[in-house]
Write a protein that binds this DNA or RNA. Structure first.
Lengths: 117, 117
DNA sequence: TTCGATGTTCGTGAAACATCGAACAAGCTA
DNA sequence: TAGCTTGTTCGATGTTTCACGAACATCGAA
């Protein structure tokens, strides 16, 4: 559980972001985080093994989409909305709208607040 | 050289588009086509073998980003701007702006009109 | 019909990716 | 200290992607 690397705003690449968002589960994670609230790892529900979830969260982090904070043995994750807006204005908005329309990533939800139908 | 398949507007998926745009060469192709003009296969210049270029154009076509028309032995390709705007409003604009800023896909150009520095 | 131009497809590797379970590390807590 | 919780890392596996050259198909022109 060593310190994870986060790219600087300027280091975030378009193709990196696109690649990160080419998987429904990761899109779902981004959607869940879209309200800007920080979430604990454990709150996130996705139909994959925990090692796989860890992998996806790492991909998002490496691409610069999310920021991870560690507190004791827990991890918290938050969407880098401002950074993304600075870097690629309008992109996140467009992606989230599109994902919303098609309900992409619906497999992912937050505990205590199951995605409403 | 059989008839290629093009997805309907409604069949275009977000993740498909994202995946298609996660490669710099394909982003470059989209940029080159961004002005809405139809281009001949042969006009497109990219630093890859022709079979590879064919592959990339196929990925773009399958993802619903471009439309291919055949005329005799020639092929022409055009960006499906309207369809994309209908399906994912603002997405293409945001991606093109971002790509422009970082000059992603600069390896790709059009014959007779080398990408200006 | 033969040739040249233009794309597609095939066969093939190398690399990347998604996924899992198992093993591990690190920090609480009893 | 021992055990639990939480998340990471490892190794294996199967799939997909990117890349190339070679072979093929198709059409127009000589």
């Amino acid at each position: 559980m060593r310190q994870a690397h986060h790219p600087e705003v300027g280091e975030i690449t378009l193709t990196g972001v696109m690649a990160a968002l080419s998987d429904p589960i990761r899109v779902g994670l981004v959607r869940v985080l879209a309200d800007g609230r920080e979430r604990g790892w454990g709150e996130l529900q996705a139909p994959v093994a925990k090692s796989t979830l860890s992998h996806h969260l790492r991909v998002l982090r490496d691409a610069g989409l999310t920021r991870t904070r560690q507190e004791g043995t827990r991890c918290f994750v938050v969407l880098r909305r401002h950074d993304l807006q600075d870097r690629f204005p309008g992109l996140l908005r467009a992606v989230l709208d599109a994902a919303e329309d098609d309900d992409i990533g619906h497999q992912v939800s937050v505990k205590d607040a199951p995605r409403p139908t």
